[in-house]
Design a protein around this nucleic acid. Structure first.
Lengths: 347, 347
DNA sequence: GTGAAAGCGCTAACAA
DNA sequence: TTGTTAGCGCTTTCAC
């Protein structure tokens, strides 16, 4: 047998002939549609198995669905996303749907547009956009074309559903925890948002807002100190240096993301300060890295699996009924306390 | 405008009408095919842009190609894979091809089969299988159906191309480095391979073999000590405990993977031993984690981007000429020296 | 260089 | 319950 003498693929016509029924009947069996007797169904199933038939998604898509759900992930490296994916895959496991991932360029709007368009072109029955950077009109445009769920806080759009974590609450969890330990000078490192249209929606902004609100709630409005950099390790390093150089050194730093916290740890190491002896540090996202023993970072866990499961549920329901009112689910994060937070030094 | 009154998609017929040419001509322009004048081409391009036409991949796939390349990634969490993906995406950036990822269940053969079948069903023009766990006959079956490149050492199959790193060489780099520092009692932690059919091919086995060979090359055959566990953090912990409990404590541990090295670090911390003061530790894969300051693990870098770029190159060439002889590319890893390796204690 | 027409594998009206 | 038939949007002979 020659390597590339690929035999013609088995089609629905072959199955119909083999089972001695019409292609319509086979199609109905495939789609679990009404109008087939149990006997016929079984006969067809047997033929399908015997011939090793697999329906062509492309052909199906021309008239009906492709049974494919497209998931746009902005950054494969962010360890938070695999959790979402797990929840998603698990929830879709017993359905006929298959998940395919589109690698969206990290924070790169044109790249994101490219990949979402490609998914639409490929006839996805539904799309899940994880933390998209595109602006709302673009998201709504997509959602008008194909059922869409946006993961992350992207406003209460009427055309797409959203699932997100309550980052205000997450930030409060951190502040509460630190205040409970006795801290007062709690600083925050945020990701500077330049685009005003995103200011309302992006997690970074929400976390910063949550920090401020929680500080005020504890009567610590005067202690609010924010270093504005980026959600990167470098950003954490620079932000921490900035905070350490300030007039009143904080006793605790709440970094808006775990990567940022890593940069903070580096800066403290550099300054000869011990953690949590001199300064406590907390992150956000509860990434795998935070859990590593040598790091052991106190962090906020976003319940990625739940987010994924919820997104899948919403998407399936919208595929079933595209006209239904949009729903916006908000989940609550939890605080994972580890070894980077402790009471402030006695002084 | 109602949310879901989605206007009919623009088709090739619309473009043809708008440009006052036949659909055949439009199709030719789309595919950069011969037989169109520059003037016609431009006219068609203009219509396409004006109408915002995007070809349907499903419909294209029924007769020709879908311009989609499927990449099976076994484990999204493994930080080595994004590098491959980067190389891949970059290499395909200027082509008409789009990459879609199939999330293959980690080390789960049925899940892997499911996702690869799904990709074939969806008319992928080519597939890149990254570190598949499926046995060779299955891989060849896929490759006979659609052009395929396997990333990882999977034998010299005649039906698919492969790109892999030379893990024998990588293991030797570590041993050479440690011996150069003055170590003699260098132990290794391997992933125990139960499946005999995989023994020849899997990276873990190859790394262990490379370790043995390199030790012998240095005349250290008698010092060969291997703890057989798994490529997990837990495996590293157990393996290290095992090695520490042995009669002659090693002065250096070469872990077969970075995660394993993390477990080793944990075990050493537990035993009150300092790194690299008492014992040196090296990993493999040069994951993001290894690079983190507080970890700073000496590790072997697999040049993921290069692997990805090479895989893309091979795949495109095979799509262009499915009959060409299979090629097997082997790339050389490099050693990244960090702070977990140093000369052995003076004794 | 250009176009008419057949057909890819499937689904969905509509008949029977 | 089952089958007949007309497309879905493209590509591809094959004429012109």
């Amino acid at each position: 047998m020659q390597p590339h003498t690929q035999a013609r693929r088995v089609t629905i016509v072959d199955v119909a002939a083999h089972a001695q029924v019409s292609t319509t009947t086979v199609s109905k069996v495939l789609r679990h549609a009404y109008g087939t007797s149990a006997a016929t169904r079984e006969k067809v199933q047997r033929s399908i198995a015997e011939l090793g038939y697999r329906p062509s998604a492309g052909a199906r898509g021309m008239r009906g669905r492709t049974y494919t759900i497209g998931v746009m992930l902005p950054d494969i490296r962010n360890p938070f996303f695999p959790d979402i994916l797990d929840g998603l895959t698990e929830a879709l496991h017993d359905t006929d749907y298959q998940v395919l991932l589109g690698p969206g360029g990290c924070n790169d709007e044109p790249a994101e547009a490219r990949v979402t368009e490609a998914m639409v072109d490929r006839g996805m029955d539904g799309m899940i956009l994880v933390a998209p950077v595109s602006a709302r009109p673009r998201l709504e445009q997509i959602a008008r074309t194909v059922p869409t769920v946006v993961v992350g806080p992207h406003g209460n759009s009427a055309v797409y559903d959203t699932v997100s974590d309550d980052d205000t609450h997450g930030a409060a969890l951190v502040v509460d925890h630190l205040v409970g330990l006795g801290h007062r000078r709690i600083a925050h490192i945020e990701h500077a948002e330049t685009d005003p249209t995103r200011l309302a929606d992006m997690p970074n902004a929400i976390r910063a807002r949550g920090y401020r609100r929680a500080m005020r709630a504890h009567g610590l409005g005067d202690e609010i100190t924010i270093a504005s950099t980026t959600y990167t390790q470098e950003g954490g390093l620079l932000g921490a240096r900035q905070l350490l150089a300030g007039p009143r050194r904080p006793t605790a730093v709440f970094a808006g993301a775990d990567v940022v916290a890593l940069g903070v740890l580096e800066a403290l190491d550099e300054a000869g300060l011990s953690v949590p002896g001199d300064i406590s540090v907390a992150g956000y996202d509860n990434t795998t890295i935070a859990a590593l023993r040598p790091i052991s970072l106190t962090s906020v866990d976003q319940a990625g699996r739940q987010i994924g499961a919820e997104a899948a549920r919403l998407l399936l329901s919208r595929i079933a009924d595209p006209e239904r009112a949009s729903t916006h689910v908000k989940l609550s994060p939890t605080l994972i306390t580890r070894r980077t937070t402790a009471p402030p030094p006695a002084v």
